[in-house]
Structures are given as C-alpha cells and as structure tokens.
C-alpha cells in the first residue's frame, strides 16, 4: 500500500469509529466541540503511528485510549492554569483536591454513550434543521461539507448552523447526562422524528441532483438500525426502520428514464428492492411483536408492507389483503409514490 492508500484507510477507520469516540468523549468532557477536537487529535496520532506500526487489531480501542490521553492532558493543563491564575492574581489558590480526578472520570465507561449522543443531538431546544444537521454530524459521522450538499445549502451556512446548535445546547444548560426514563420516551420520539426527517429529505431528491441527497436515506436507515440495536424493546423504532426500508425499496421505480415521477400504482414492481422489502416486512413483524398498540410509524410501515406484499404476488390488492388498514380510517394519506 502506498502512503495515500494508508492515510485513506486510516481516515476510513477513524470515520467508522468517530461517532462512538465522540460519544464517549462528550460524556467525559461535557462539550461537543472539545470532544470533536480530541477525537481529531486521536486521528492525527493514528496518522503518525499507524503507517509505521500497522493498523491495530482493535482500532476503536486504540483511538479511544489515545483520545483519553489527550483529554487527560487537557484536564491537567486546565488544572494547572486554574492553580496558576489565582497565584497571578495574588488570590488564595483553589483546593487541588476539589478538582475532579480526570482519570476516574474517563474510566467510568457507559454503553449508552452513543444513544445519549443521539438524545443530545435531538435536544428539544434545537430546531428540526439543527437537530438533523447535528445528528448527521455526530451520529452519521458526515462532514459539514457533505451535510451542506445534502441540504442544498453552502458549507458556510451549514457550518454556522452547527456552531449555533452547539451554542444553543450550551445556553440550554445541557449537562450531557443520560435522561431519566420519563424524559427518555419523549427524547426517543424526537430522535425518531429527526431520522424520518433526514430520510424524507433524501427521498424527495430527484435524479440528476447531488448524490449526497439519496445518501441521506441510507444514512437515516443506518442510524435507525443502530438505534434499534440500542433500544430493541421499542416497537416504534422497528416500525420506523421498516417504514424507511419499505419506502426505499421503491427508489429505483419512482422515476422514469426522463426523471418524471411514477405513481405507486403504475410502478414497475419488478424494480422494487427485494432485500429491503424482506427486511422491512421482518421489521413490521418485530414492531408488532414488541407492542400490541402500534404507533404511527408502525402503522405506516404496515401500510407500506401491504403494498410490498402485493408486489410480491401480483397487482395491488391492498384493501382485501390488509386488515391492518381498517383501524386507520379513511383520512390517512397513503404513500403516492
């Protein structure tokens, strides 16, 4: 491998690990920007040592250890400054024992770090646009440039949006602590809403636009699957992932060769994606198994599943085959394409 390939491989590993890395660091340092900086420092360290030593067996753990070391340095430096400043000002030095022990803080690991970071990114104090941007940045690991292209705004605008979101969090007094169970349910709803918003942003893209937009659908599904792993008992998470997968299964059939939309009934069902349909149908079943009272995502997924099942046999026998639709009534809008 030449040097270019090695740096690209290292950066890929870092991008794969970055969300968990930042999530762990946010818990320790309680500051998103600082956590991102420390994760970046770990990348710099990897770029320096991996070309010589090779990529370690557990690159995630290596990066975390390296970032922790940077965090400890940072805390020590701050503690030193805190001691020095009063001396300079001829005031009483602060009691050193009152400062938190950085190493103890860093070692108190939590498996819920990534979930908590999702909750932080979807904080109710933030606008939906800011929530989406921050989620894609922190959980999706997308660069500011990629997020900007996906939302059809300039990189400077998106950078501003992210900076402002971080400031809003700081002003809202976000402590980056795991929310209690009552708050958790509300936050989870907000996370699901943001993921679906990101998905729809990508789904509305038409041909010829930047490839980053359809990429949003993939990213939303991927983050949904990660979330489903973390809270497997939440029926609506399975419902949302299934809904996204079933809708995405129609991606190839939604447009004609000239880019004009093709309505659901007229779509070439042979072009629907069978892998996604299979996953989506399994997800609908899973959502049903987790709760007897389906939420809105689970219900919408069940409707999408009826269309998908119709595609697997022939024709559109929606009303006859889908008892699930009965409790919904007639006002519910159906997917048009």
């Amino acid at each position: 491998m030449n040097g270019d390939n090695i740096s690209r491989a290292i950066e890929t590993v870092w991008r794969m690990e970055a969300p968990r890395l930042v999530a762990g660091l946010v818990r320790m340092v309680r500051d998103i920007s600082l956590a991102e900086e420390l994760a970046q420092e770990a990348l710099v360290g990897a770029l320096q040592s991996w070309p010589k030593s090779g990529v370690p067996d557990n690159p995630g753990a290596w990066l975390m250890t390296s970032a922790k070391r940077c965090a400890i340095d940072y805390f020590r430096h701050n503690a030193m400054v805190a001691r020095k400043l009063p001396e300079i000002a001829h005031a009483t030095p602060t009691d050193a024992s009152a400062a938190p022990d950085p190493e103890a803080l860093l070692d108190a690991g939590s498996g819920d770090d990534l979930l908590n970071l999702m909750f932080v990114a979807c904080h109710p104090a933030l606008s939906p646009e800011a929530q989406s941007a921050l989620t894609l940045r922190l959980i999706g690991g997308l660069s500011t440039n990629e997020i900007a292209r996906a939302f059809l705004v300039s990189e400077a605008t998106m950078a501003q949006r992210i900076v402002r979101a971080k400031r809003t969090l700081a002003e809202a007094g976000e402590r980056f602590a795991f929310p209690n169970s009552a708050e958790r349910q509300a936050r989870l709803g907000s996370v699901l809403g943001v993921l679906y918003l990101i998905f729809n942003e990508g789904y509305s893209a038409t041909t010829g636009q930047d490839w980053m937009r359809p990429q949003l659908c993939e990213e939303a599904m991927r983050m949904g699957r990660i979330l489903a792993q973390m809270v497997p008992d939440q029926s609506e998470v399975h419902g949302l992932v299934a809904l996204m997968e079933l809708q995405a299964s129609r991606f190839a059939a939604r447009h004609g060769a000239d880019g004009t939309p093709i309505l659901l009934a007229e779509q070439n069902r042979a072009r629907w994606d069978r892998t996604l349909i299979g996953r989506g149908l399994a997800g609908v079943d899973r959502a049903r198994a987790e709760s007897l009272h389906p939420g809105s995502y689970s219900l919408q997924a069940a409707i999408a599943a009826c269309h998908a099942r119709a595609a697997l046999s022939c024709g559109n026998r929606l009303e006859r085959d889908c008892p699930t639709l009965r409790p919904i009534g007639t006002n519910q809008s159906r997917p048009r394409y």
Binding site: M16, R222, M223, G224, R225, I226, L276, G278
Partner: peptide, 9 residues
C-alpha cells in the same frame, strides 16, 4: 456489523 447498522443480509 449489525450494531454499526451496515449488515443487510
């Protein structure tokens, strides 16, 4: 791979 959301089948 499932935890990372990358595995489809």
């Amino acid at each position: 791979m499932i935890e990372a959301g990358v595995m489809l089948a």
